[in-house]
Design a protein around this nucleic acid. Structure first.
Lengths: 142, 142
DNA sequence: GTCTATGCAAAGGCTTTGCAACCTA
DNA sequence: TAGGTTGCAAAGCCTTTGCATAGAC
């Protein structure tokens, strides 16, 4: 649980408080291996016998996203998911359209950044970020 | 309005019917230059003094997406948008986070397809499609 | 004690469902 | 006439808001 405490300490150093809800939420987030929706996370936390309100999960996830601790992830079902932000950069995802599992993949963003620069110049547009997801069938569902 | 009629005819040849609602909807879709949400499209159609129910717009868009006439577009706000499917391939988008306008861009998908193949092999995953959007500031908002 | 964070209730917004009526072919 | 389509009403689902209370520092 080192990472949980590390995150909590950095929050405290920024004037935020360490609460039961916050700790449980970050712990649960760190345990998941794929992006989770607020209600899903709430269900998991509840199973671990920590009582947190759904609204708190929504608010906390939004807060953590604002300060960059988690990254929002948008898949095709229009449900907001989040994942713990990696140390640098961000993740891309392989989404199985059958079983709905999501696998994180590392894509060398170098090419994408070249592309961004090119598109930006061409369209007179300042590209700040991108989102790239792949959809298909995982080994289990193929 | 040639394209509207072309689409309608191809629908009819597949056993579907040409109705007032369907025609108005396709016409409105062809007029938009960026992905539109159902309610947004409904508002535009209503302004042109054609009375269609909101539910019809939802149903029709879903139907048109199922048969490939339109493509679903998912942006970060978790609202389902659609755009007329291009003749081949699909589009990528530059989304201005300030004014919310969306500009279509053509990205040579060749590199992406190589990437897909690579990822597929590496992760034992069959990639069927991808979605790639860029977020930032347009010329007007920068 | 102060001010952030939480819980509860309620509302908001987008989307779907059920069913009878309508209208295209 | 037959069956795809539509409209209306209602419900479903995810998410946000308001406000009083609890709790961290």
């Amino acid at each position: 649980m080192k990472r949980t405490e590390f995150i909590l300490q950095s929050l405290r150093q920024n004037g935020h408080r360490i609460t039961k809800a916050r700790r449980a939420l970050i712990k649960a987030l760190l345990r998941t291996k794929q992006p989770v929706a607020a209600l899903e996370l709430h269900a998991r936390i509840s199973k671990s016998k920590v009582a947190i309100d759904r609204v708190t999960v929504y608010r906390e996830l939004k807060f953590l996203a604002d300060i960059g601790v988690v990254h929002p992830v948008n898949l095709k079902d229009n449900i907001q998911r989040y994942e713990i932000a990696p140390v640098s950069g961000h993740k891309h995802h392989l989404v199985c359209t059958a079983c709905k599992t999501v696998k994180n993949v590392n894509v060398a963003c170098a090419d994408l950044h070249n592309l961004e620069a090119l598109l930006g110049k061409k369209n007179n547009f300042i590209v700040r970020e991108h989102s790239l997801e792949f959809y298909g069938l995982c080994a289990h569902c193929a």
